[in-house]
């Protein structure tokens, strides 16, 4: 008698905790969906194009791949310009400062700054975003030779669009 009472109380606690967890999980999911835009770390060039013209005072981050062949050094020596692309839209970026070691053409990048009236993004900070692939140099070379490299690049561009 008392044993079965204890058992049903345990079951009650189990259900109660399960229900509480579900409720908390639901609340978290709702909250995170509502604040989705503020959780987003950067905008892709496509998202930026949808919102243009941008308020020049608004600080924001843009992310994408550095377009191959777009990196240029200006005459003063420390300012660079490059194009950030998600393969659908492009944004011109200018930046004065030291680039991270992993900054490469064809690789991911996240820049923080603002749009100037000419539609160029003036970056105060440039961060490199690398992909989830890790391999020795020989393997990378072999992939490039066999033509599988483009799959990886396509995937990276897709990841950037998110």
């Amino acid at each position: 008698m008392s044993l079965s009472r204890a058992k049903s109380r345990k079951r009650q606690r189990l259900y109660l905790i399960g229900a509480a967890l579900l409720a908390a999980g639901g609340a978290a999911a709702l909250g995170l969906t509502a604040f989705r835009d503020s959780v987003v770390f950067f905008f892709s060039p496509t998202e930026l194009a949808e919102q243009s013209p941008m308020d020049p005072d608004r600080r924001l981050r843009i992310g994408g791949l550095v377009e191959e062949g777009s990196l240029q050094k200006l005459e003063n020596g420390s300012t660079v310009t490059f194009t950030v692309t998600d393969m659908q839209h492009d944004v011109q970026v200018s930046y004065t400062g030291i680039l991270p070691d992993l900054f490469r053409e064809g690789q991911g990048v996240v820049a923080e700054g603002h749009m100037n009236p000419k539609g160029q993004f003036v970056a105060q900070e440039v961060l490199a975003k690398h992909d989830e692939n890790y391999m020795p140099r020989e393997v990378a070379d072999a992939l490039k030779k066999s033509g599988h490299w483009e799959e990886i690049e396509k995937q990276n561009a897709k990841n950037m669009r998110n």
Binding site: V39, V40, F41, K129, D131
Partner: peptide, 8 residues
């Protein structure tokens, strides 16, 4: 779920 600086 979100875009991040951290890789997937």
């Amino acid at each position: 779920w979100w875009n991040t600086l951290h890789q997937p």
